[in-house]
Design a protein around this nucleic acid. Sequence first.
DNA 1: CTGAAAGCGCTTACAG
DNA 2: CTGAAAGCGCTTACAG
Lengths: 342, 342
Amino acid sequence: MKAKARTKVSDVASRAGVSVATVSRSFNNPDAVREDVRRRVMEAAQALGYSPNPAAKALRMQRTHIVGAVVPTLDYAIYAQMLNSFQAAMQASGYMVFMLAAGFDNTSLYEPVRQLVDRGAEGLLIVGKIEDPRLLKFLEDGRIPTVLTYSYLPDGPFPSIGFDNYAATRQLADFLVRLGHKHMVMISGRTRGNDRQQARVRAFREAAAEAGIAKTTHVIERPYSLLEGAAAMRTIYVEHPATTAVMCASDVLAFGVLSECKNLRLNVPKDLTVTGFDNQDFTALLDPPLTTVDVPALEMGRRSGEALLNVINTRRKIGSVRLETNLIVRASAAGVRADERR
Amino acid sequence: MKAKARTKVSDVASRAGVSVATVSRSFNNPDAVREDVRRRVMEAAQALGYSPNPAAKALRMQRTHIVGAVVPTLDYAIYAQMLNSFQAAMQASGYMVFMLAAGFDNTSLYEPVRQLVDRGAEGLLIVGKIEDPRLLKFLEDGRIPTVLTYSYLPDGPFPSIGFDNYAATRQLADFLVRLGHKHMVMISGRTRGNDRQQARVRAFREAAAEAGIAKTTHVIERPYSLLEGAAAMRTIYVEHPATTAVMCASDVLAFGVLSECKNLRLNVPKDLTVTGFDNQDFTALLDPPLTTVDVPALEMGRRSGEALLNVINTRRKIGSVRLETNLIVRASAAGVRADERR
DNA sequence: CTGAAAGCGCTTACAG
DNA sequence: CTGAAAGCGCTTACAG
């Protein structure tokens, strides 16, 4: 068993009794071909199951119609959704996408991204701020069309389609402060090479500082996972027993926390307020339903696709877009009991 | 701003003072080049940041080193995990992957898969049995290396790396029968064009038939989603009030069922036994922890990658691989109370 | 061990 | 409106 030879322009040309130039024109510039000739060509192509060789086409046109998408992981609903809608947008415009799961740390992205470009990616979608100077230089020197997403970064060298991680987190933290919480812990994701997490931690700390409760608030850094959320909750229970609110940087961490609260016989929200981030579908069905922040994953993916196409086609600098987030208040967050207002 | 011209073999050649043939050989057949010459070439390439044009290489070699992966959706942990490990395996061997989310119905896969091949995919990974005759003919006529996954299909035209959906479901159903359940409902995913779901439904029905309880068992078909699981549970509560066990074809459906049970004041497992499928990480943290079936997603992805590489490189027919699943018994499943053993 | 040349399958400027 | 020919950037059989 061996690969069958693909039919090529010359096959179609001889079957239709025309030159290869005419076959090519029939596909790419149909108006330049007499109608009956074009029809004959198309019939021949159809009969032979012809489709142009993408490598030959790419070599000749200097366009691969491939882009690369760099996400932290596929195994997290927000990124999967984003990628789904990005992919759909690109495919609708005739682009294919190479997907790369590169982890959450953006400080050593050069090698993997370089590989994407070497393999033909004409443009790139990258989640978060680029923290790797080599990569930055490579993209700028090579003038590689690049769009960042997830973070809104209006001052950077590349357009970004994202939301304000600081503002969204700050809104939630301020909300908890107003509910009377003075002993709060934030469970953040890994902050190394991750501007989104850094912004969230900063928002939490500054909210606490401005409320005058910096001394009674803490940040615990953990990888995103259910089990890590649960483990972090046990740590909080032991090391910060006065805590009345736990703010998680992701719904998955919060799910773990909620589950551990059951083991610890802590009632949420009576004994403890818990919040998440992302508004994943399961949050509404947790017990109690989770207060969280709605993030426009599908819209980010779609609009990032449009933006990237724009940059690729026009080669012009375009502006960043700041998408809205929404605080979703559900039963897992409530005010502090009078006797806890120390 | 315009794209910068990429450096090409001839640039490296002139900088190193050799012919393009020698540059090419230095990369692809280093032993055929004198050591000092090769070093000079490599230094020149390094200095210029050279990497071979993939389109030119693909055209000349008639190899794109691209494969396509067709999954139902990215937004479901099992497929995301599978794709992650498939991708890693392919990348390790120098292959890039075009990803395609094509939905759960395999009866009209021809167009999207054809696009993958037209865009250069040399081989394909497809989740589940192919139910589209046009696609089958296209793949067989074109001798396109193809590996199926998720389903174990030893008798089909393509090798498969998957598990026995019938056996896994049957094991679970028989387990519930032994616990004394006589009024069972299965919430299955959509069965149209989906051999995995069909096998699971068949396993459930045959288990019930052999236990002599076919008349008191039912199947409800719903899309995979939390909310659909919850909605299905309300339907069961109203239309099949005698039900003592609900078998869900996915953990996500079961999560929805569990959540709805809380609203309905049904205690699981005292009033109702609930089971899932896939052993997603959250199942252990549900309240109560969910009885489910562990599916080897990562192993499927990795081994499918190895199998596909094997077919691409050797062009030989290879055998299918049947992976093991494990019944994970947790608190959500228990025997029927004496007064319910009607 | 090295180089000149052919050719992979396209598209398009040029000539008619 | 159509065709002959050049050329995109590689690799490799061939000659030396």
